[in-house]
């Protein structure tokens, strides 16, 4: 009896051991990856923020970045302003994406075609879409004929001299924001449509029987049901606060005061190799962004999720 119990216990321990081996063998690579490429990279970045390019430890780089942020005309300050603009546009577009996904979920006529059309920018890719758009807005020049938009404007009577240079000093930022909104109709569409699709139709049916209107259905019935998806997207958006940006690299190359923080980093890393300045700026933005992201997460967690 005792021997049987011991055997059983050994068997249980053996099973536990096999399970432990299985679990750790499956997750060891992702954990090592996280340790190197998240923890290691971030700790190294913090150290670099307090270093000079020579490797000497100093607060100089950090002070330089903070000074630069305080100077409204500096490249970094302009980059911050543009990044925040893109972030606000992104928030607006997330709400707009929700409404678009609702209309697709409610099977607006040709919804399948629209789903594909709105997903098109993701299919053909940023570089193709952006370069096509640049050519589309192309002004009259020695090299090429005017792009279709410019031709259209001239065809409706706008004098050639008055046609705006869409990617010039005056219009570049507005054009980039327009582009971001224009191609952004399908942003988060897969996730929102997925969330809508999982809602039991009986819930909607019974609300309909109670005579609920479409708008109320969206606000009071559907929105609470897809809140976990919406709130997750919202939190992730705040986490990427200082990473927000538009197609600056392809369309303007950072010219005409269009640089974002992302572009500013790219430019410093690839052109001047100012690694420490990038790390110092990163540290400042991380310190500002972290409490904001955590506060938003805390706030969305206050809203109880509906189980279904």
């Amino acid at each position: 009896m005792v021997a049987q119990k011991v055997k059983k216990l050994h068997g249980f321990k053996r099973a536990q051991l096999f399970q432990t081996i299985f679990v750790w063998s499956m997750i060891v690579i992702p954990i090592v990856h996280w340790l190197i490429f998240w923890l290691g990279v971030n700790l190294n970045s913090i150290l670099m923020a307090f270093q000079l390019p020579t490797g000497e430890y100093s607060l100089f780089t950090l002070q330089q970045v903070i000074e630069s942020l305080g100077n409204a005309g500096s490249k970094l300050a302009i980059a911050v302003k543009n990044t925040l603009t893109y972030f606000v546009v992104g928030l607006f577009m997330t709400v707009f994406n929700l409404v678009v996904s609702y209309c697709l979920f409610k099977k607006v006529r040709a919804w399948r075609f629209f789903e594909i059309a709105f997903y098109l920018p993701s299919i053909v890719g940023g570089v193709v879409m952006e370069l096509a758009f640049v050519q589309f807005l192309s002004p009259v020049s020695a090299y090429t004929t005017a792009g279709p938009i410019v031709e259209l404007l001239m065809a409706v009577g706008v004098p050639a001299k008055e046609v705006p240079v869409f990617l010039g000093q005056e219009w570049a930022n507005k054009t980039l924001i327009f582009y971001t909104c224009w191609i952004g109709w399908g942003g988060n569409m897969l996730l929102f449509c997925g969330a809508f699709a999982r809602i039991p139709l009986e819930v909607i049916e019974s609300a309909r029987l109670d005579g609920i209107s479409g708008l109320k259905e969206l606000i009071y019935i559907l929105f609470p049901l897809i809140w976990p998806t919406f709130s997750t997207i919202l939190v992730l958006q705040f986490t990427g606060l200082f990473g927000a940006g538009g197609p600056v690299l392809t369309m303007t190359g950072g010219n005409f005061d269009t640089q974002t923080i992302g572009y500013w980093i790219y430019d410093l890393v690839t052109e001047s190799g100012s690694y420490n300045e990038v790390a110092a700026a990163g540290l400042v933005f991380t310190c500002i962004g972290t409490p904001i992201a955590l506060f938003v997460r805390w706030l969305v967690d206050k809203v109880p999720a509906v189980e279904y």
């Binding site: 679990v23 997750i27 996280w34 990279v41 970045s45 939190v235 990427g240 700026a281």
Partner: peptide, 29 residues
């Protein structure tokens, strides 16, 4: 398994921290 909550929390935490400007550090590593 042991450590599951800790690893999960760290994974979520790392998603929550808006790390910026790690490109330079990444290239060095």
């Amino acid at each position: 398994f042991k450590g599951k909550t800790l690893i999960f929390s760290l994974a979520i935490f790392s998603m929550m921290i808006p790390t910026v400007g790690t490109t330079a550090s990444m290239i060095k590593i």
